[in-house]
């Protein structure tokens, strides 16, 4: 039993895996190199039980481990990416979309949904980094807007989990304008007094960082997540200096006042719920107010950082 399970024994229950483990029962932690048992890692929400390193988590797993019972209703799930520019570099954008859809089983890089968190209705959006680097194209922007609209109309808090390299170059200016679109939706939400909590996970950079991700009433970073506007290489080329260790990590942002808190993924639900309870004038959560989480169904790609 890991140290974490000793502290929080019953919250996260695992179901028996029905799918067979494709290959490799063991996964190496990219941070401490410990050999980790896949099922144990899944139980631990993809956090290394040895060193606490937070591995990247897919959008669907994120929402499954966020909502009560892992249950949620998707918003805008029928939206499909388009290629208005007929963009082509070494590959056609159309082909890149098809490939990404095949690899991830998702239609685009964001899932928007609503469900319950400790019995409270909430809307949430999660980025799928494996879908073209979580880049923000028109579908991502529209789904996010719809999630914000759902939150506005139902006066339910909105939570986002970002993991994105930024804008989607293949949608060019359409993509850039998603920054304005999502920020505008959040401004309306803010005017209506509906809470928005932004969770920045590894990595959150570029146009996503410079729009929806930094606009939370509360901004939360996951431990050691890379968060910043410009990429490391661009900065190094511009200033011709080597960047200090820890630059653009969550803890660095916390030190510089850009985020409110750094929260361990395994406590995220409780922390967010307690914030929302205060922001919405609800009574404190009772200690027996727990909800069963659906276990992570850790597929082969999940832990491949």
């Amino acid at each position: 039993m890991s140290w974490f399970e000793k502290i929080m024994p019953s919250r996260i229950t695992t179901e028996r895996r029905t799918k067979s483990v494709p290959e490799g029962l063991w996964i190496q932690c990219p941070h401490c190199s410990a050999q980790l048992y896949r099922a144990e890692l899944a139980r631990n929400m993809l956090v290394c039980p040895k060193c606490g390193h937070h591995m990247r988590m897919g959008a669907r797993d994120r929402l499954r481990t966020f909502f009560d019972e892992g249950a949620f209703t998707e918003i805008g799930e029928n939206l499909q990416p388009q290629d208005p520019l007929k963009f082509r570099d070494s590959k056609r954008y159309k082909d890149r979309i098809v490939q990404a859809q095949k690899n991830t089983d998702e239609q685009d890089a964001l899932i928007a949904a609503h469900g319950e968190l400790f019995g409270m209705p909430v809307a949430a959006a999660a980025f799928e980094f494996k879908f073209m680097g979580g880049s923000m194209g028109a579908v991502v922007g529209e789904r996010f807007r719809l999630a914000a609209k759902h939150a506005l109309e139902n006066k339910t808090p909105l939570v986002s989990f970002s993991a994105s390299g930024g804008a989607r170059m293949q949608e060019a200016l359409f993509s850039l304008f998603q920054m304005a679109k999502t920020s505008a939706a959040l401004a309306e939400l803010s005017e209506a007094g509906v809470p928005y909590i932004s969770v920045l996970t590894d990595p959150t950079t570029g146009g996503v960082s410079a729009s929806l991700a930094m606009l939370g009433d509360i901004n939360i970073g996951e431990p050691r997540a890379l968060i910043g506007f410009a990429g490391r290489r661009v900065i190094e080329q511009t200033v011709r200096e080597t960047l200090p260790e820890g630059f653009q990590r969550s803890e660095f942002l916390l030190d510089h006042g850009a985020i409110d808190m750094v929260v361990d993924r395994r406590e995220m639900r409780e922390q967010i719920a307690d914030l929302i309870r205060k922001m919405t004038q609800r009574p404190a959560r009772l200690s027996e107010d727990t909800a069963t989480l659906k276990a992570l169904d850790l597929s082969e790609q999940d832990a491949a950082d």
Partner: peptide, 18 residues
């Protein structure tokens, strides 16, 4: 894209403007 700009919240500054 500079170190100081990142330290002082370039992302937030742009996001807030939007």
């Amino acid at each position: 894209p500079g170190i100081g700009a990142e330290e002082r919240g370039q992302s937030e500054a742009i996001a807030r403007s939007l």
